[in-house]
Nucleic acid binder design. Structure first.
Length: 272
DNA sequence: CCCGGAACCTGAAGGC
DNA sequence: TGCCTTCAGGTTCCGG
């Protein structure tokens, strides 16, 4: 499931192929992927534009265009961007294809059709309310401490809230909470300053590690070259229900928390 | 503002 | 073999 490390990997590994290149065509095997504007305007606004930069904010990808607009892509739960030669045909799950002037195409593959593409005047429309980037300066221990204070939902639900911190999803939330020794059901207000400090460090550490290992390919996510990432090989709890805790060998517990599969170690992450 | 649940989707995997 | 259920979960919308 694409979260910050998977999206960052996608940006890094697509950019060298398309940055500075001109978009020569668009194909939409599933038109429903385009959220806005209407299709005719979408196509005409895109074709002929040069990509002048590629950025990420949270889980959102932006292709900055020479005319001033931005193409916004969101992989949601099952999307990948794949770099292909122009001649490559659409696969069964290819929902959109962007063709460039260097014999390169980007295929948006998305089995479950949750993915979204928008052509916008600027990123603000989708990033306006997002919380800070966890790997940048705005995400300080103080910020975490202060903003957790008034939250009542379970800690995992809070760090999944994109308006609280941008980029964390269910897998890296489980990993961060394990690394910090905090039960996912704990109330934010009950965390000690020491625990908040550990959580702050853990969030940054698991995301950095995820990027270093080029993202996690737990089911449908692939890197732009079609290869799997390696991050899931380093997961300690995420997607490991029933398996022994890597620290204490206790079988990992599985619960549904706010509809999200959640794995944790009942011994290393006790519910006080 | 905050919370929790439903809805959106479809393939894979497991049980019987 | 085949049918049924469960699981995967990012975001938005809605009611409380």
């Amino acid at each position: 499931m694409p979260e910050l490390p998977e999206v960052e990997t996608t940006v890094r590994e697509t950019a060298p192929h398309i940055n500075g290149r001109r978009i020569t065509g668009v194909a939409l095997p599933w038109e429903g992927i385009v959220r806005e504007p209407a299709l005719a305007e979408f196509r005409s606004g895109l074709i002929g534009e040069t990509v002048t930069g590629i950025t990420r904010r949270g889980k959102y990808i932006f292709w900055h265009l020479s005319g001033g607009k931005v193409l916004n892509l969101h992989l949601k739960m099952s999307g990948s961007l794949l770099v292909k030669p122009s001649s490559a045909e659409a696969g069964k799950f290819t929902r959109a294809i962007f063709y460039f002037d260097n014999d390169t195409a980007i295929h948006f593959r998305d089995p479950r059709k949750f993915g979204v593409i928008r052509l916008l005047d600027g990123p603000e429309k989708v990033t306006g309310r997002l919380g800070p980037e966890p790997l940048e300066g705005g995400f300080t221990r103080k910020f975490l401490e202060r903003s957790l204070a008034r939250r009542k939902a379970p800690i995992k639900a809070v760090i999944l809230d994109q308006n609280f911190i941008a980029g964390i999803g269910s897998m890296y939330a489980d990993e961060a909470l394990f690394a910090a020794g905090i039960n996912p059901q704990r109330r934010p207000g009950s965390l000690t300053p020491e625990e908040v400090k550990r959580l702050h460090r853990a969030i940054r550490q698991v995301l950095r590690s995820g990027i270093e290992h080029m993202g996690a390919s737990t089911s449908t996510y692939f890197r732009p070259g079609g290869e799997a990432g390696f991050a899931h090989h380093h997961f300690k709890v995420a997607h490991r229900r029933g398996k022994p805790c890597p620290v204490c060998d206790t079988p990992l517990e599985y619960i549904k928390l706010r509809g999200r599969g959640t794995c944790f170690c009942p011994r290393c992450q006790p519910l006080k």
